[in-house]
Design a protein around this nucleic acid. Structure first.
Length: 632
RNA sequence: GCCCAUGUAGCUCAGUCGGUAGAGCACUUCCUUGGUAAGGAAGUGGUCGCCGGUUCGACUCCGGCCGUGGGCUCCA
């Protein structure tokens, strides 16, 4: 007899009982035994603690999706015997599996593979874990011509190799897995893509299939509905549809043309940003868009970043279109001897930069080749570092919250302790920087994730990633130390002691780039901007031609009060005008018919909410005005 | 940059087994003056992404390029 702790209760079992028998839980797809994830079929020989792992948990989903990847690989091997499986992991939303095939998969293949998967799932094929002695594993996979598996085995130190068998399909795999293919009830293959073996572009391009599976049809439907929702929020569709921006093939990829409405949104963001930054003690500067190549050699960008820079010749000398604002700010700092009394110096710029991003990474306004950073550099003394970092975090959070974001994931990126030689700067600098980042994070009460080895070579940093209305993560704010530029530009300040000291340099942005940020806002709000950011806040519409005079009068009063307003006097029916205004997601619709004109009122309608009733002009202005303030 | 897919009117999409194109919406005009998510009619609008090749003839087949999308990679 052994004693097993299940659900906080001890039970006696015969040694050799399986986890499945102990749990007797229909929803369990795997088990956790003394903290280790194992198959339900595992035999328990000693006293232990057993917990069920269900699809509802993150690790449960990972196991389930990984089993989905195996099922797909089985189907692929049956339909395409020449396909060599490589790796097929679970990802946050499903799984993928990469195959080496003579001809890449097409979308048509997906349907066939999906059908075969459904067939295999119905058969409820048992998924069996086996240990192969190393030699046997090598023999087995070489007989099958699965050279990629052999390559993986080569890197495994173990004497015995873990494999999973389901019918005719055997895969090298650590597991665990669901007990049989029948647990997978709903299957959807989503897309095919090319991917390099081991992510290295010098290696062979493999054919990748993305898919997702669920224990019930309902969950798949829900998931697909979420994907539909994301499509409706796509800024690449909404932007042009709402007359915010456009792209033009004849102008070049990754270059945004901002229409009046988009330019208005940018201006509103910038006005708010400027107000907050001036209040927080920043000074705004402006620097040129081009410069001599040697400036970029001095900053070091030229060596590291050459590929991404646009360069051109001027009088036999190479110039560059600025890809970063930093060197300009360094030059301004250096124009006079700075005293410790002058610090901290916070220098900010709406800096438009151009980078020759590789064509494949361009994405709407979110990843472009010309963009405007809300850039700033803080020059300070070691003693000021912590307060400055805290100030940056506070400012970032305040602003991001004003834009409607409430949830954040924060990363603290520090050196890789195993490769300290990769980094510039002294240990003292890194220690002080890291300590100040941590205490600033703690002061602001933020939970954060410590990412070892994620720091860039010139300093540690904090990244604030926001979660939008659909739960998607976007990286915007960053606050990073720079131990490189201070040296390269010989930046110092005169200390109290009358000696030169090197400055601490902090590079930071709140929004990242305004192009990207507007794109994120469009996605977040699905194009329905809050009143304070809406390019058009109100539209006045007449019911018949007789009220045009009154409607114009209403518009005049709104304009005088600073409301961004349009008028619709077309001879269409009011229902049509309302439909269009709703489609354009204009926050307030003011209907001015004969009844309203007679009483000098308007009938107010809110986007997405419908008719609010009739209000006087003053009451209408008060209502819009209240919504037009920056929140927070 | 690489793999795959894709490009027909402002938008959404039909279509042509190779014989130079069509719908709905939008737009313009006219009728309509109607009360909260699309009233009616007529009309304008396309070098079928661009360049080259094959062909008597190319939107259609082939090649190259550009753009876009899904990924990979990159993100000093």
């Amino acid at each position: 007899m052994i004693e097993i702790l299940v659900d906080e209760q001890k039970h006696g079992f015969e040694a050799g009982v399986t986890a499945a028998e102990v749990l007797a839980d229909k929803d369990a797809i795997a088990a956790r035994v003394d903290g280790r994830l194992v198959d339900l079929s595992v035999r328990l020989e000693e006293s232990c603690t057993v917990e069920p792992v269900r699809f509802g948990s993150e690790e449960g989903r990972k196991i389930f999706w990984h089993s989905g990847a195996h099922l797909m690989a089985q189907a692929v091997k049956q339909l395409f015997p020449e396909a060599k499986p490589t790796i097929g992991p679970a990802i946050p939303d499903g799984f993928y599996y990469d195959f080496d095939v003579p001809k890449p998969f097409t979308d048509e293949d997906l349907g066939r593979i999906e059908e075969r998967m459904k067939k295999l799932a119905k058969k409820q094929i048992p998924i069996i874990h086996k240990w192969f002695p190393r030699e046997q594993a090598i023999k087995f996979f070489s007989e099958r011509g699965e050279t990629y598996k052999l390559e993986i085995i080569k890197d495994l130190p173990d004497k015995r190799i873990s494999v999973y068998e389901q019918g005719d399909f055997v895969d090298l795999c650590r597991g665990p897995h669901v007990p049989n293919t029948g647990r997978i009830k709903a299957i959807k293959l989503l897309s095919v893509a090319g991917a390099y073996w081991r992510g290295d572009e010098n290696n062979r391009m493999l054919s990748r299939i993305y898919g997702i599976v669920f224990p019930t049809e309902g969950q798949l439907k829900e998931h697909l509905a979420r994907l539909e929702q994301a499509k409706l929020h796509d800024h690449r569709k909404l932007g042009p549809a709402l007359d915010i921006f456009s792209f033009h093939e004849e102008a070049g990829a990754g270059l945004v043309f901002w229409h009046p409405k988009g330019a208005t949104i940018r201006r509103l963001i910038q006005n708010y940003w400027n107000r907050e930054h001036l209040a927080a003690g920043y000074q705004l500067v402006v620097t040129p868009h081009i410069g001599r190549g040697r400036l970029w050699q001095q900053s070091g960008h030229y060596d590291h970043y050459r590929e991404d820079m646009y360069t051109f010749m001027v009088d036999n000398e190479e110039y560059v279109l600025k890809p970063m604002n930093c060197p300009g700010h360094m030059l301004i700092y250096r124009t006079k001897v700075r005293s410790y009394r002058d610090l901290p110096l916070r220098m900010a710029e709406w800096g438009t930069v151009y980078r020759n991003e590789r064509s494949g990474v361009l994405h709407g306004t979110i990843r472009v080749r010309g963009f405007t950073q809300d850039d700033a550099h803080i020059f300070c003394t070691p003693g000021q570092v912590e307060d400055e970092i805290f100030g940056v975090i506070k400012l970032s959070l305040k602003m991001l919250r004003a834009f409607g974001f409430t949830d954040f994931n924060v990363d603290l990126s520090v050196r890789d302790p195993k490769h300290l030689d990769k980094y510039l700067g002294t240990d003292e600098q890194w220690d002080l920087a890291e300590k100040s980042l941590i205490s600033a994070l703690e002061r602001s009460g933020l939970k954060y994730h410590r990412a070892e080895g994620e720091a860039v070579f010139y300093g540690p940093k904090i990244d604030i990633k926001l979660l939008d209305s659909l739960g998607r993560e976007w990286q915007c704010s960053t606050c990073q130390f720079d131990f490189n530029l201070g040296d390269r530009f010989k930046l110092y300040y005169m200390g109290e002691d009358g000696k030169h000291h090197s400055v601490y340099l902090v590079h930071r942005t709140v929004l990242g780039s305004i192009e990207r940020f507007v794109g994120i806002l469009v996605e977040h709000y699905g194009g329905a901007f809050p009143t304070w950011l809406a390019p058009v806040q109100a539209r006045v519409m007449t019911v018949t031609d007789k009220e045009i005079g009154y409607a114009r009068n209403v518009v005049r009063q709104l304009v005088a009060a600073g409301v961004r307003v349009e008028i619709d006097t077309r001879s269409d029916k009011i229902a049509y005008k309302v439909a269009e205004a709703e489609r354009l997601k204009i926050p307030y619709m003011l209907v001015t018919g004969a009844r309203e004109a007679q009483k000098q009122v308007v009938s107010l309608r809110r986007h997405g909410k419908g008719n609010l009733g009739t209000f006087s002009i003053e009451a209408t202005l008060a209502q819009i005005g209240e919504q037009a303030n920056v929140p927070g």
